[in-house]
Amino acid sequence: MNQQECSSGLIKQVELVVIGASSGGLDVLITLLQHLPRHYQIPTVAVLHQRPNRSSGVPEMLAKYTHMKVQEPEDKQGIEAGNFYVAPPNYHLLIDNDRVFSLSLDAPLNFCRPSIDMAFESAAEVYGDKLVGCVLTGANSDGAEGVRYIKRYGGHVLVQDPAQATVDSMPRAAIAAAEVDEIIKIEQIAERLSLFAEGHQA
């Protein structure tokens, strides 16, 4: 099984990384990007709760810290290596079976739009065990249900150590919801992802 391979040091085949973060999320995403090596090319999606403001400026901000191309995806845009995608504020971000983004204006889920749960669930349905989900700092429990989904479909889940998180409710909720694979600091999450990236290149 993939999980076992992972914990026994073998490299898992990863085709997508999805990250959920809320309060304090921007800073921790910056730390993550700063620690990702140049060979890291796995397409990565960050769902960050933000004010429902049209031009968030988040992609521009994150772009300063990474070699990847940072962008807010448009509807039906294909998912490609070397890109770091940030969910646009005020839309739900989903993924269709043919691996393209699909946006939606469905009502907020548990007061959140974008909803981390919805993004995680639809990513799990499409990427199955080729998916890694990360839950970072945040002041609610969005993502917990999604983590359960990722595990059901055989994906791998990394959670930021609640002791390190600016606000620990979100990581704690994720840990309570499912048997997550690792609970580690953000720097170690970066290490883990770069290890996966070696498998991605191969």
């Binding site: 099984m1 993939n2 999980q3 499409v126 065990d129 080729k130 595990k151 479909y153 055989g154």
Partner: peptide, 15 residues
């Protein structure tokens, strides 16, 4: 844990 091999396959609900 049972893991699902996705590929092109749809699950019961999707079908």
């Amino acid at each position: 844990m049972v893991t699902v091999d996705r590929g092109e396959q749809l699950n019961e609900f999707e079908v």
